[in-house]
Computed example of a mutant assay.
Amino acid sequence: MKQPKRYQRYSGMLLLAVLLPAKSLFAQKAHMDKSITVVTGCYNASQMEMAEELCLFDNHRFIYSMSYGALDQFTKGTWHQRHDTLYLDSDKPAPKFMVQASQDTTVAAGKMLLVFAFNYQHAPYLVFEFSEHPSPDSSLPLTETPNGIEALVDQPFYRHLKILHSMYDNTFFDYPLPAGVNKLVISPGKGLGRLQFTKEAFLVRKDILEDVNSKDHLFHFSGKPPEAALQYAMPDE
């Protein structure tokens, strides 16, 4: 029996409505099937005068390190893959500076002594101010002494020390001054020199990780890391 043309048209539209979602699901599955599972191990992106490495471990921990001249940066945390993209998330950042406050009878009245326990070669990168809105381009002068790098300043009206190490930071560390102190000893904390990754993304290719923010920034697989390297990827105590 021959079907009316209107019925044929409606049945064809119904068939199309059923097939389109199925086709879409098939396309998504095909895309997922083409995704390459990231190979755990070390990936190298070193260039002339710059060393850069990313190591992925089977327990979904990672280490990233970069060295360029006097600049050394490091971070570690967790990684996961979603489809064709690898994401890195750093651990909770450790303190960038450790500050010890005390009262010292040898410090002149009305003064405050700041002692920086840094190598003197890093002194040009230290910026500190007693200001609510410090400038990253200015700092008080530092003096090299047998005890370290020091600065003798007037007791500040603004009771917060703002510290920046411009090699590593782009935001100031804020230390509120306890009452009555006239000496501060500032030393590098475990967080100094550490980057902070939050869903840092890389496209996964065969033996290659491609930075989504720069297609020229490629990490090439260089082999399995030594077993001892895993301890450096574990969270800090």
Rank of each mutant, 00 (worst) to 15 (best):
A229M: 10
V204E: 02
L88A: 00
L56T: 08
A201F: 01
H31G: 04
W79E: 11
F219N: 06
M13Q: 06
V115M: 13
P141C: 02
K111S: 13
L15D: 05
A108D: 12
A45Q: 14
Q8C: 03
T171E: 15
F172A: 13
D154Y: 12
P156Q: 14
T37W: 14
L203C: 00
F74Y: 15
H60E: 13
F116S: 04
K2D: 02
S222M: 10
P136L: 07
S138G: 05
K34N: 01
S131V: 04
P226M: 10
L218A: 03
P146I: 12
Q3K: 04
Q121S: 11
A101D: 03
K96M: 08
N213G: 09
V181T: 08
Y68R: 06
Q8W: 03
F157N: 12
V38L: 07
E52L: 13
R194T: 06
Q121D: 09
A101V: 02
D72G: 15
N147V: 03
H60K: 14
F26Y: 15
P95C: 12
Y168K: 01
D207Q: 09
H80K: 12
R9V: 01
C42A: 15
P134Y: 14
T37R: 12
D216C: 10
Q196P: 03
L54P: 01
A123Y: 03
L25G: 09
F62D: 03
L56N: 08
T78L: 10
G77W: 07
Q8V: 00
I149Q: 05
P4N: 02
L209K: 04
D58Q: 13
L114D: 00
V38K: 04
S222V: 08
Q155A: 13
V185A: 01
M1C: 02
A229N: 06
I186R: 02
G77L: 08
L230W: 09
F116K: 02
Y7W: 03
I163V: 15
Y125K: 03
E53C: 05
R205Q: 07
H165Q: 07
S214V: 04
Q121L: 08
N213Y: 06
Y68D: 07
A117Q: 01
G12M: 13
P21G: 07
P4W: 04
T85D: 02
H220E: 09
T198H: 15
T145A: 04
F118P: 00
Q100S: 07
D154M: 11
P134V: 15
K162Q: 15
F74K: 14
F57V: 09
Y10S: 08
L230A: 08
G69H: 00
L114Y: 00
H220Q: 11
Q28M: 05
L192Q: 07
K162G: 02
Q8P: 00
F197M: 12
D72L: 12
Q196S: 11
D154K: 14
K23A: 13
Y120P: 05
T37V: 15
F128G: 01
T171A: 12
A108M: 14
A109D: 14
P176K: 15
K215V: 12
